[in-house]
Nucleic acid binder design. Structure first.
Lengths: 249, 249
DNA sequence: GTTGTGGATTAGTGTCGACTAAATCTCCTG
DNA sequence: CAGGAGATTTAGTCGACACTAATCCACAAC
C-alpha cells in the first residue's frame, strides 16, 4: 500500500473485511478486459505511484464508472489494492499477471517485425489483440526463435517468463544536458506517424548520439549522430519520447 | 434455401417480414461467438445439407436455446437463412465470413507447425483462439512466408484470401475397396491421441498406400505402404478418418 | 472553518451471450 | 390418425462490461 493508504484510512468506513482471494496457483485465465485493466494500472502506477480512476479511464477509453466497477472486481480477485476515492495499485499477483501480458505483447511485437516483415509503427495494434489469445507456450517458442531477446522493437524491456523485468535508468533526450553522449534506448510512443518519422531519420534504439545544442524555453534539440556525424534537429515533443542512457565518454 | 424450405414453409406463420441486411461492404468485424457459429454451420451443412440446432449445440458445447437465439441474430444479420424447427444454412455472406475464419485457422495451424515447431496434434486449440484475433494482413504475411500453401497440416484445403476453397473428391479409407491404390490426403480428426498415433505410424497426408485386406463387418483394414511395402492394420474408427484420393494405377 | 470544484462512486440501464425450465413443434409409430 | 419421443423454441435469469445521470468525497482556496 505505501503511497496509498497512509492517511484517511478511516474513509473506507471499515468495509466488509476484504474477502480472501484463494491464492491462485498460476493460470486462472483472465478475461481480455481484466488483462487490459491490469496493464493500465501497471503502466500508470509505474514508479511506486497510484493509478487513478480518471487516468485509467482515459487510457482505456472507457467511462469512469466502468473503471470504478472493474477496480472493485479486481480488488475482490486480489489483483489490486485500492482505497476508494484515492486510487489503485497492483498486488504482487496483479503485477505478475500484468507482466505476463506485457511479455506477450512485447515478444509478439518483436516477432512480427523480425519474422513477418511488419514495420515497427504497425505492430502495436496487432499485438494488442493477440496478447489476449496466445498461449504462454507459443510466446516461449517465439522467444526462442528470437533467441530470447531482452527488448522489443521500441526498446522496451521484455519481462522474463518468470515475471522479472529489467528496470533501466534512462533520461529523456529533452532533459539531457547539452554535451551529453548518449545511446538511444527506448522510444516511448506508439503513434505510427511519429514512429515512421523517427525510423526515417535513423532515430531507433541503439543509436549513439551527442546532444549538440538546445534552444531555450522548450525549443528543439540538436543532436549529432554517431558515427556518421550528421546532425538532426528534434522537436520538444519528440525529444521527450526518446529515452537514453548516458555512455562512457 | 433448396433443401431447407421446400415444405412446411407456412410453419413460419409469415413472421415480421425478414428485415433487410444492409449489404455490408466487407469487414463488419464479427464477434468471436458469431465466427464460431458460422464455422459450425459451415462444417455441418457442408455438402448442401442443413445444420440443426442440436448439432450446432453439440459442436460448440452450448445449450440448444443459445443456438436458437444466435441463429435468429445471424439470420437478422443476413449471415444465415433458417426455417424454424428445421435448421439453418449459410447465405453467401455467411459463407464468405466462415471461409475467412477457416482460412485464418488453417494458415495458423500450418504456420505453427512449420515455423514454430508445434506438432500437428497441438495446433488446433492454439489456432482456435488466435483465429479470432489475427488480422487478415498478418494471415497473408504468414501465407507468404509459407509460400501460399494449399493445405493445412491435416490436409484440409486452405481457402484463398478471396474466399475460394478447393473441393476434393475423396473417399474414406474405411470405404475404399480392397485393392485400391490410394494417396492419403486428409485426416479428419483433431483428437491429439489419434493424431499422435497416426504420425507415429507414418499415416500423414501424402502417403501412398494400397488397401491390402479388410475384415468383414466393420473390422480393421490392412494397408500396404509405399514405397517401403510395410503393412499396417488400421481399426475401423481410424480408417473412417483417413480421406484418400485414388491414384492412377 | 466553510465551501466550491473536480474526481469518484452509486444507481439504474442496456447489450451480448450464456443458462434452466417450460412450452411447442415435427415426425415416427402403432 | 392419435400419441409420444425428441428436437426446438419461448420465457425468464444471470454475469460481464459497458453507458448516463445523479450523488458523494477530497482538497484547496477563501
Amino acid at each position: 500500500m505505501t503511497a496509498l493508504a497512509d492517511r484517511r484510512r478511516h474513509a473506507t468506513r471499515s468495509r466488509t473485511a476484504a474477502r480472501r482471494a484463494p491464492a491462485r496457483p498460476s493460470l486462472p485465465a483472465l478475461s481480455r478486459s481484466v488483462e487490459d485493466y491490469l496493464k493500465a494500472v501497471y503502466h500508470l502506477s509505474d514508479h511506486g505511484g497510484v493509478a487513478t480512476t480518471k487516468d485509467i479511464a482515459l487510457k482505456l477509453m472507457v467511462a469512469a464508472p466502468s473503471v470504478s466497477m472493474m477496480l472493485k472486481r479486481l480488488s475482490a480477485l486480489g489483483l489490486v489494492k485500492r482505497v476508494p476515492y484515492q486510487g489503485a495499485q497492483l498486488t504482487r499477483e496483479g503485477r505478475q499477471a500484468a507482466l505476463r501480458t506485457i511479455r506477450r505483447h512485447r515478444v509478439l511485437e518483436l516477432y512480427l517485425t523480425r519474422h513477418l516483415g511488419f514495420a515497427w509503427d504497425t505492430v502495436h495494434d496487432e499485438a494488442e489483440r493477440l496478447e489476449h489469445a496466445v498461449s504462454d507456450l507459443l510466446i516461449d517458442r517465439m522467444a526462442t526463435a528470437l533467441d530470447n531477446p531482452r527488448y522489443d522493437p521500441h526498446g522496451d524491456p521484455i519481462p522474463t517468463a518468470d515475471g522479472r523485468i529489467e528496470s533501466a535508468d534512462l533520461v529523456s533526450l529533452a532533459a539531457a544536458p547539452v554535451g551529453s553522449e548518449l545511446e538511444l534506448r527506448q522510444v516511448t510512443t506508439q503513434d505510427p506517424e511519429r514512429l515512421r518519422f523517427l525510423a526515417d531519420h535513423g532515430l531507433v534504439p541503439g543509436l549513439q548520439l551527442t546532444v549538440a545544442d538546445r534552444q531555450p524555453f522548450g525549443g528543439p534539440t540538436t543532436v549529432r549522430l554517431r558515427p556518421a556525424g550528421t546532425r538532426q534537429i528534434v522537436g520538444m515533443e519528440l525529444a521527450q519520447v526518446l529515452q537514453c542512457r548516458t555512455r562512457a565518454k
